[in-house]
């Protein structure tokens, strides 16, 4: 599914990631962890082609790093960025429309829109409301819905539960589990170990822009202390 090899990336002269390797499989939730500034968001942006990077990122054999950035979502990558980054002055319907624009088949837009809105009925009631006026939880729903409109094979979520109330966190968690069960590869950036333990099939830890350690679901419980030490908690 997703295979990252020898990925180095940064901003201008400053290198943030060095020789990072990672894999994410379909039907699994892969979690990327690390301290603040470790390079998690840069890794997500590198997959999307939004930062200059060397190395290879392939999705089902397609080299995403060789594509112009705007073609990456068309190959089945949905992105929920940190801080949601909605088009705040556009309505909910227009944000959804932008997401649908990157879906592979224009003829299926109607069905895809209905399918996504069925996951987030609250958004369906607010289609004409400006995205910037939604509550934090609703904004996160919209950011997730917009990414799902791409009809992704790979869903990238960068700290989707940050700053949300528990009920909303649970709803986002349920959506991630539903997407996993549907066969999507989910790559999640998350800081909270408690949230990861019951959810992750694999965990990759990066420190100072390099691979530090990885865990599978079976050895995660035994390695919890090491994971905590990596994160400094």
């Amino acid at each position: 599914m997703l295979k990252i090899e020898a990925l180095s990336a940064g901003y201008g002269q400053a290198m943030v990631l060095r020789d990072v390797a990672l894999e994410a499989q379909a039907g699994e939730i892969t979690v990327l962890m690390g301290r603040n500034g470790a390079g998690k968001t840069t890794l997500m942006k590198s997959i999307m082609g939004l930062v200059k990077a060397s190395g290879t990122v392939t999705l089902d054999g397609v080299a995403l790093t060789a594509l112009p950035p705007h073609q990456v979502p068309r190959h089945g990558v949905g992105y929920v960025p940190q801080g949601r980054r909605l088009f705040s002055e556009l309505t909910v319907a227009q944000n959804i429309e932008i997401g649908l624009g990157a879906a592979p088949d224009a003829r299926s837009h109607g069905a895809l829109r209905a399918e996504v809105l069925a996951l987030f009925p609250r958004l369906a009631e607010r289609m004409d409301q400006r995205a910037g006026t939604l509550s934090g939880g609703e904004q996160q729903m919209l950011a997730t819905a917009r990414a799902l409109c791409v009809k992704p094979k790979l869903l990238l979520l960068d700290e989707p539960t940050e700053g949300l109330q528990p009920s909303m966190i649970e709803q986002i968690r349920q959506v991630m589990l539903a997407m996993r069960d549907k066969g999507l590869a989910v790559l999640l950036v998350e800081q909270r170990i408690d949230a990861v333990l019951g959810l992750a099939d694999r965990v990759f830890v990066i420190e100072n822009g390099r691979n530090a350690e990885s865990f599978t679901r079976s050895d995660l419980a035994a390695g919890e202390a090491r994971l905590r030490s990596h994160l400094g908690v």
């Binding site: 999307m48 082609g49 939004l50 950035p69 705007h70 073609q71 990456v72 979502p73 068309r74 992105y79 960025p81 980054r85 088009f87 932008i98 997401g99 624009g101 990157a102 917009r146 791409v150």
Partner: peptide, 8 residues
């Protein structure tokens, strides 16, 4: 940047 991430 977000527009790019959604195929624009």
């Amino acid at each position: 940047e977000m527009a790019t991430a959604f195929g624009v």
